[in-house]
Simulated assay, not measured.
Amino acid sequence: MKKCHIAYLACTAALIGTGLGAAPPAAAHRIHVVHPGESIQKAVDAAQPGDTVLLTYGTYHESVDVSTPGLTLRGVGRGTVLEPAAGASTGTAPSTGSDAAKTGTAGKPGKAGKPGKPGKAASSCAAAGNGICVVGTKDHNVDGVTVASLTVTGFAKTGLYATEADGLTVRRVTAVKNGVWGIATEHSIHGEFRDNTARDNGDAGLFLANTVKEEQGATDTEGTVVERNRLEGNRIGVTVRRLRNLTLADNHLTGNCAGVFVVGDENKPKAGFVTVRDNRIVRNNKSCPKTARLDALQGSGVVLTGAEDSLVTHNVIKDNVGKSPLSGGIVLFKSFVGTTSDRNRISDNLLRDNTPDLVNTDTGKGNTFEGNSCRSSKPAGLC
Rank of each mutant, 00 (worst) to 15 (best):
K2R: 15
C4P: 15
A10K: 13
G17C: 09
A22Q: 13
A28I: 15
H29D: 06
V33S: 05
V34N: 02
H35T: 13
P36L: 11
G37E: 04
Q41R: 09
K42M: 10
K42Y: 06
K42G: 14
D45T: 11
P49I: 09
V53A: 07
V53Q: 03
T59Y: 01
H61L: 10
V64Q: 12
V64W: 11
V66E: 14
S67E: 10
S67H: 15
G70M: 10
G70N: 09
V76K: 00
P84V: 06
A85K: 11
T90A: 10
T92F: 01
T92R: 14
T92W: 01
P94H: 02
T96P: 15
G104I: 10
K111W: 11
A112H: 10
K117G: 04
K120F: 02
I132N: 12
V135Y: 09
D139I: 06
G144P: 03
T151K: 02
G154I: 06
A156D: 02
A156R: 03
K157S: 13
A162I: 02
R171Y: 02
V180I: 09
G182E: 11
I183D: 00
T185N: 05
E186G: 07
H187N: 08
S188P: 08
I189Q: 14
F193V: 06
R194S: 14
D195K: 13
T197I: 15
G202K: 07
G205K: 14
K213D: 15
G217A: 04
A218T: 00
D220R: 01
E222S: 10
G223D: 06
T224C: 01
V226T: 09
E227Q: 13
G233D: 08
L243V: 00
A249D: 12
A249L: 06
N256M: 10
A258P: 01
V262M: 13
N267R: 08
K268R: 12
P269E: 02
P269S: 04
A271M: 06
G272N: 03
F273K: 10
V276E: 05
N279R: 13
R280P: 00
R280Q: 13
I281L: 09
V282C: 03
N284T: 01
L294Q: 14
L294T: 13
L294Y: 05
Q298E: 14
G299R: 10
S300E: 04
V302L: 10
A307Y: 05
S310E: 06
V312T: 02
D319N: 15
K323L: 08
S324P: 05
P325V: 01
L326Y: 05
S327A: 15
I330D: 04
K334D: 01
S335N: 09
S341Y: 09
D342R: 13
S347C: 04
S347L: 12
D353H: 14
F369Q: 11
E370Q: 13
R375D: 13
R375W: 09
S377E: 07
S377Y: 07
G381S: 03
L382K: 07
